[in-house]
Amino acid sequence: MNNSRSIKAVEWLKSSGGITVTCTILVALAVSIHKGPYVLVNTLVTGGMWALMAIGVSLLFGVMNISNFAHGEYFMIGSLTAYYIMHPLKEYLLETPNSFLAFITPVLGIAGATLAGVIAGILTDKLIFAQLRKRNREGWLLNCFLITIGLSIILINLHMLIFGNTFKGVVNYWDVPSLALGDVYVSVDRVVVFFIAMLAILFFWYLMMYTTLGKKIRAVAQDENGARMVGIPVNRVYSTTFALACGFAALAGGSLLFMFPSYPTVGIAPLYNSWFIIILVGFGNVAGAVPGGFMIALFQVVTRTYMGEGWENVIPMFLISAILIFKPYGIFETKVRSVWEQ
């Protein structure tokens, strides 16, 4: 028993996924020794959130066959909402200090952001994709791709029109001293954000695996007509899926407000990243998105540290293109590809 398990582990290590994961861990360790552990902290904080974004995109594709190029805009909605909740409260707190309110402010902001994302997701599905489902299922993949592009333009420019082209951010969430881990100081915000990401991923995993809703979503993903035949309200499941995916994106946006201040095109980098991750781990591979998120985050942090600002979009791009050519199913060799090639 124990022997066969270790053989399996060795075999996994020899596969491309195992090699990449091992290399990532080694690189992470090497870089943190060379440049200090802040690299590792940054990787962990952003990686978890990119994983959340990628899970959303992957889910939307797996269940609804929508390749969402507007996913970054839900990130933007989240960060915008969080800003407009946190900023007035922080202003108010400057005049009337209140320790409980100071503690609860970021929580309110992040929760509000998630709620806004959920509402935006439901609205998007009801107003656009439900209409398209009713009318025309032909060329669905390409139509949806173009629609999400249109949606992205609309949301970016609406932001610019209504809230202006300025950076809207907060400096920190909690005014408490940094945590000291040995001789490394890590701000509380980063630690909390990392745990939020992990909790959200756990929540998602539990939802998909052990609840009726998760079963319904998986059933619809497998076969829409079959699901409809056994009495699953398919349209409602679609709306829920959209709400879930957009809620995650907005949660990421709200949580990372202290690193990414909200402005119209703030969603572009998260969008790139979530597509990197999806290509890296293979289309439709939700579980792989978690290690993928950390890998991409590490890769970008390393590129930025060693080559300077701006290169982090160039070098990973070549790498991802190479992966796309030589390993089109991703490093974990997922075999969910039929729909992608229509």
């Binding site: 656009i128 398209l132 173009l146 592009i149 333009i153 609309i154 420019n157 029109l161 082209n165």
Partner: peptide, 22 residues
């Protein structure tokens, strides 16, 4: 005085064409 309004119309047009008249 309304920057970006033309791009919003772009987007609306794209969505409308894709949904109603592909």
């Amino acid at each position: 005085d309304l920057p970006g309004i033309n791009l919003i119309i772009y987007g609306v047009f794209l969505i409308a064409i894709m949904v109603y008249y592909p």
